[in-house]
Design a protein around this nucleic acid. Structure first.
Lengths: 328, 328
DNA sequence: CTGAAAGCGCTTACAG
DNA sequence: CTGAAAGCGCTTACAG
């Protein structure tokens, strides 16, 4: 910058004005001189230096709980799209369902002075989340919320999503309905709520609640859990998979056992999957507006950053929608 | 930092030494005093300021051509994993197959002073790539290479991958073999090479080369292209899909037409897909060591950054492997 | 073993 | 309309 200033025979201040498009008080002549100097020198401003002075980096961080879920990927795409429209860049981190990783990333991102954070909270770093709020770090939660942390949170209408699925099964005449989710040991919001919604829907329909129709285990234990569930005298006739990953396990199981969908077992996937239209039979799914949710989260965050104050600490829920195909 | 120094009754220099774990010349007492001061003040170092001084950011950028490909996602995961092990963070950008976006991202990343770049080059920004090399920006290409730019490039053995597929089809008795890829108008390396390999393999096997068995079009035109290809009197008996996205289109087409795999059409996907084991029939695929490739790319880049010199400007090729299932 | 001082590359009142 | 100066929060020789 000093070189440009010298070459254009102006001060650094003036070059700075030029860089930042504040031409109001600049003669046309100096403007072109600076322009030329920049061109000749191949000068590119150093935004790091600017960040230091301005105390903002035009960068936000997003930490997803587990990038293997299609939901995460779609949210990430939305975050990137709307961020780029505002010329802010995004650093993406994958906490891998690991609280220590989450903590490390939060600290790293803060050290990098990101302007704000989008988090799929693992849930175990309560003090850390609290500290973030205390220090007024712009923050929005996605997919999960944390009891006791008041911050904008964007979630699916999980209970209703399960209810839609159960209702659909019920309408088709299935009464023995099961559900499979990943482990709820950590009280991960969507899993807990989806099971809750499933239970409520059964009760509402006057169907019995059977513990042996509910499995919440790690992916690696799902084949065993399904084997157990289906070796009962009266196994489920219909099964709701709580996520795309769980659904893949269900399809694996069905394949292994040579079961026919929907005759031997009707299935619904919570989360759209790439192959829902090409599978035989075509797969009924509960679709989440993941892109929308990511977009909304980013808009809230950016507004929060801009205005410097909490925009909305409410819980925002997005509705799920049933896409009826042939697996039910 | 100044506050910490004051509180601990030392100078900023000493605090800085402490932060950077240079305890050699530090009395145990000052050390604990600083420790306490940091604790009480809740101090976190500002890495932006450090970056400015040190002229390195411990951040690398990766720009994928199109994040929708499973290959991109896997490479990204690898880049993140090995970067994190070295405490460098990564900024991910999706060029969306758009040269202007690619250019914008390259400039943004450079303005942010990233220490190095991993690129899936779109190919149209030749001068920009050249400039990167001239200015000694650590750079590695993945998936694609650019004629005339000498930089470490990690690619699949694309020609061989096609040959493996064609050979497998041939061994199974198919002689009318087609290939479907996304558009090669831009001379994207893997697509061009995969078609090239396909052609060579046919010739090697003494099979005729038929233009009407080759389609390279945008995803949105694939259904039409397939309709054309299969409305010939002698349509292909076997089809190689050049990517996961193209493969999904093939399966859609097959489904629409009520064709049976492999009886009406044998298929192989270049790229593993999540549903290859659960589809009926199970799907034969050509698997790419995407994670390995991403890992290797990152290792080269980090070494280049560390040593400050080109580690290896060779073209590195990774072998593909055929996973035989039931679709052929 | 520790501190004073310069400097990284910018921006921003302020003076003129 | 433009420039001199201070300062953002660090690191790094260097002196003592």
């Amino acid at each position: 910058m000093a070189d440009v200033a010298k070459k254009a025979k102006v001060s650094k201040s003036t070059v700075s004005q030029y860089i930042n498009n504040r031409y109001e008080y600049m003669s046309a002549e100096t403007k072109t001189r600076i322009e030329e100097a920049i061109e000749e020198l191949g000068y590119h401003p150093n935004v790091i230096a600017r960040s230091l002075k301005q105390k903002k980096t035009s960068t936000i961080g997003v930490i997803v709980a587990n990038i293997l879920h299609a939901f995460s990927t779609q949210v990430i795409r939305a975050v990137e799209d709307v961020s780029n429209d505002s010329n802010v860049s995004v650093i993406i981190c994958n906490a891998d369902d690991n609280p220590e990783k989450e903590q490390k990333y939060i600290e790293m991102l803060r050290a990098k002075q990101v302007d704000g954070l989008i988090l799929f909270p693992i849930g175990s770093n309560f003090e850390l989340y609290q500290q973030l709020k205390e220090e007024n770090v712009p923050l929005v939660f996605v997919d999960r919320r944390v009891e006791g942390i008041e911050t904008a949170s964007i979630l699916l209408e999980n209970e209703n999503a399960s209810e839609i699925a159960v209702d659909h099964f019920f309408k088709r005449g299935y009464t023995r309905i099961g559900i499979l989710t990943t482990s709820i040991a950590e009280k991960i919001t969507p899993r807990v709520e989806r099971i809750e919604g499933y239970k409520k829907a059964l009760v509402k329909r006057g169907l019995p609640l059977r513990d042996d129709y509910i499995a919440s285990v790690d992916i690696s234990d799902m084949q065993d859990a399904l084997t157990n569930m289906f070796s009962q005298p009266e196994p489920p006739q219909a099964l709701l998979a709580g996520s795309d990953l769980a659904f893949l396990e269900v399809l694996h199981f069905v394949k292994r056992k040579g079961m026919q969908i929907p005759d031997d077992l009707a299935v619904i996937s919570m989360d759209e999957v790439s192959f829902s239209e090409i599978y035989q039979p075509r797969l009924t799914t509960i679709s989440q507006p993941a892109y929308q949710m990511g977009k909304h989260a980013t808009e809230i965050l950016l507004k929060q950053i801009k205005t410097g104050k909490e925009v909305n600490s409410d819980l925002i829920r997005y509705p799920a929608s049933l896409i009826i195909r042939e697996s039910t």
